[in-house]
Simulated scan of single mutants.
Amino acid sequence: NVTSALAFVPYQSTPTYSATKAALHSFSESLRIQLAGADTGVQVIEMVPPGVQTPLFGQQDSEHAMPLDDFLTEALDLLREKPDAKEIVVERARFIRDAVATGTYDDVLAMIAGS
């Protein structure tokens, strides 16, 4: 499942997008547990990209967004390194993904709001 770093710290200009990605994160977690308990052999991997230079939200030329080729290379490298990963989070998305755990949520939320 492809969610977004915005599933973990929302962007005020895209509340529906952020909320649906948060819901997909929760669904992925629940589905992973459900399928593991049923011993189905199905793996649930959540892809957690940052903003990527694509036409989505007009980010194709944004200096704040990650170049698409860089994202794909790093994400596929991570998947190759750890094929049993629950989440694939590129370095550029890690500070947003982990904002609650690192105690930086309010700072990251303010930074995203300012961008």
Rank of each mutant, 00 (worst) to 15 (best):
V2Y: 14
L6Q: 06
L6N: 05
P10N: 03
Y11K: 13
Q12E: 04
T14I: 09
P15K: 06
P15S: 02
T16G: 12
Y17T: 02
S18L: 05
L24P: 15
H25A: 13
S26F: 08
S28N: 09
S28E: 08
E29L: 15
L31M: 14
L31K: 09
I33C: 03
Q34E: 15
G41D: 07
V44P: 09
P49I: 04
P50I: 01
T54A: 04
P55W: 01
L56S: 08
F57R: 05
D61L: 05
H64K: 08
P67T: 02
D69F: 09
F71K: 06
E74M: 11
L76W: 08
D77Y: 04
L78G: 10
L78D: 05
R80Q: 12
K82H: 14
A85T: 03
A85P: 13
E87S: 11
E87A: 08
I88C: 10
V89Y: 03
E91K: 15
A93H: 07
R94E: 07
I96W: 05
V100L: 04
A101C: 00
Y105D: 01
D107S: 08
D107Y: 00
D107H: 01
V108D: 01
M111Y: 02
M111E: 10
A113G: 13
A113F: 00
S115C: 03
S115M: 14
